[in-house]
Amino acid sequence: MGATALLAAYVGVWATVAPRGFYESFPGFGFTWISIDGPFNEHLIRDVGAMYVALGTLTVAAFFARMAAAGRLVGLGWTVFGCLHFGYHALHPEGGTTDRIATLLSLGISLALGILLMIPPRRESERPPTAESGFPARGATGPVR
Score class of each variant (00 low, 15 high):
L58M: 10
T32C: 10
R122S: 13
G87L: 09
I101L: 12
G56Y: 02
G75T: 05
P19E: 05
S110Q: 05
G30T: 07
G28Y: 03
P27Y: 08
H43Q: 12
I115P: 10
L73N: 08
P129H: 02
G82T: 01
G82D: 01
E94V: 13
E24K: 15
F86G: 07
Y88A: 11
D47Q: 12
A70C: 07
L111N: 02
I45Y: 00
E94Q: 15
I45C: 02
M51D: 02
L107T: 05
V48P: 00
G21K: 12
G77F: 06
P121S: 14
P19W: 01
L55Y: 01
A70F: 07
I115V: 15
F63Q: 05
V17P: 15
A68E: 09
H43K: 06
E94K: 13
L104N: 13
M51T: 12
T79V: 01
P129D: 06
G71A: 08
L44E: 02
F81L: 08
Y52R: 03
G77L: 13
G56W: 02
S25H: 15
L111G: 00
T79H: 01
I36Y: 05
L111W: 08
G77I: 00
R100N: 13
H92M: 14
W78D: 04
P19F: 07
Y23V: 13
Y88T: 04
A90K: 06
G30Y: 05
F31S: 07
V80K: 05
S110H: 08
A102W: 06
T98G: 08
F31V: 10
L73Y: 10
T59I: 00
T97F: 12
G38A: 10
G87Q: 10
S125Q: 14
H92S: 13
R100L: 06
F86H: 09
G87M: 09
P27I: 09
T98N: 11
R122W: 09
A65F: 00
D99I: 07
G77V: 04
L91W: 07
L58R: 01
T130I: 08
F86K: 08
F31H: 14
V80Y: 02
F22L: 11
T16W: 12
A54D: 07
W78C: 10
G96L: 04
E24R: 14
F64Q: 04
G30S: 09
G28I: 10
G134R: 11
L76D: 05
G108F: 03
E124I: 13
A15V: 05
L117K: 03
F86S: 10
S25M: 11
D47N: 14
G71N: 09
L104A: 07
H85Q: 15
R72L: 02
P129I: 01
H85M: 12
D47P: 03
F29M: 12
T103R: 03
